[in-house]
């Protein structure tokens, strides 16, 4: 076996080891390579940025743990943006495990031990203020703070359940749920995941159907994202944005060109771009997990490009393109 054959027959475990080292080391020596937001991500950010407390968005946790690394940072970034602008958010899930991941994400955002997070006020805790009559979010916040509730140190604001946020969660046969929400959201979700009555929530009284919703951001690791386009956009003209895994991204660029989706976050890179835009917009002080992974991503890509180039050099220099049998080691 000559040198080129040895090179082409290298034990793949050495390649795994090399990739592992390349992925681990940059976490300890950060380079801060620039991440420039693309038009596809900017269009989602700009749309959410143009919304306010009178609007509403859906964020669909339409993935399972297999693609958590890519999809979860996207959801966290969009939620932070919406909460900081007081844009009401409905959270849904296509899969049961998606509901658990969404709970994990909001749990992280509502953890006020970490600076820059949001203080969560459960539906049951502001019952007395509801009984006195709900007259808008601003007056609710004023009444809440006047009642002696102080914003925890480092927190960026309050999130009132039922006003700023409703965790609708998982329902089976989600395409039928989207169709049903075109007529009435409450008919599909009589209660949220905590058992609170959804029809009584101010967020729902202001947005009764999908027609009253300004955007749905679906975070998906499979073709489930198309359900929102097929049944939401086609039926009620719902604006939809995608947060999909990198593997899927090329499949959905045509839907941006056709105007069927507003924009797309593709993979961890898409999430990092959204985080950069949020930081530039002053909605967070520090970028999130996705941005921190970008140095590693770039280095790993360089390593893989080098391996592809070296593999090709070995293939041609060894003359294997001239029908020479490649002696594969068994």
């Amino acid at each position: 076996m000559n040198f080129w054959e040895k090179m082409l027959n290298i034990d793949r475990r050495w390649i795994y080891l090399a990739i592992a080292i390349i992925v681990i080391v940059p976490f300890f020596a950060r380079m801060g390579l620039p991440v420039v937001p693309t038009r596809e991500v900017e269009s989602i950010y700009n749309l959410v940025d143009s919304l306010g407390p009178e609007d509403a968005i859906f964020v669909g946790w339409d993935f399972d743990p297999g693609t958590e690394a890519e999809n979860q940072p996207m959801g966290v970034a969009v939620l932070r943006h919406a909460f900081s602008r007081h844009v009401p958010v409905f959270i849904t899930a296509y899969y049961p495990l998606g509901q658990a991941l969404a709970q994990q994400a909001v749990g992280g955002i509502f953890d006020t031990r970490v600076p820059g997070n949001y203080a969560f006020v459960p539906w049951t805790e502001w019952e007395s203020m509801r009984a006195a009559g709900f007259a808008g979010r601003d007056s609710l916040e004023t009444a809440w703070t006047a009642a002696g509730h102080a914003l925890p140190e480092g927190a960026r604001g309050w999130v009132f359940e039922g006003v700023d946020y409703a965790f609708l969660g998982y329902q089976p046969s989600f395409y039928l749920v989207i169709l049903g929400m075109g007529t009435s959201i409450a008919s599909q979700y009589p209660t949220d995941t905590n058992g609170n009555p959804v029809p009584e929530m101010p967020i729902l009284q202001a947005h009764k159907t999908l027609r009253d919703v300004d955007l749905a951001v679906t975070l998906a690791g499979s073709t489930t994202c198309m359900t929102w386009v097929i049944y939401g956009t086609s039926r009620v003209g719902l604006r939809v944005a995608f947060g999909v895994t990198a593997v899927m991204a090329t499949d959905y660029f045509p839907y941006i060109q056709s105007g069927q989706i507003v924009g797309m976050m593709g993979g961890l890179r898409g999430a990092a771009e959204y985080e950069v835009l949020e930081t530039q917009g002053g909605y967070t002080d520090v970028t999130g997990k996705a941005y921190r992974g970008m140095d590693v991503q770039s280095l790993a890509h360089i390593a893989i490009i080098l391996m592809v180039v070296l593999g090709n050099i070995a293939f041609f220099a060894g003359g294997f393109n001239k029908k020479t049998a490649l002696k594969a080691r068994r």
Partner: peptide, 21 residues
Amino acid sequence: TFGFTVMGRISLLIGRVQFLL
């Protein structure tokens, strides 16, 4: 598509390594 696939697989590894570290 292959380029995006490489990016996706590395992203998944990054996610796990971030969690472990």
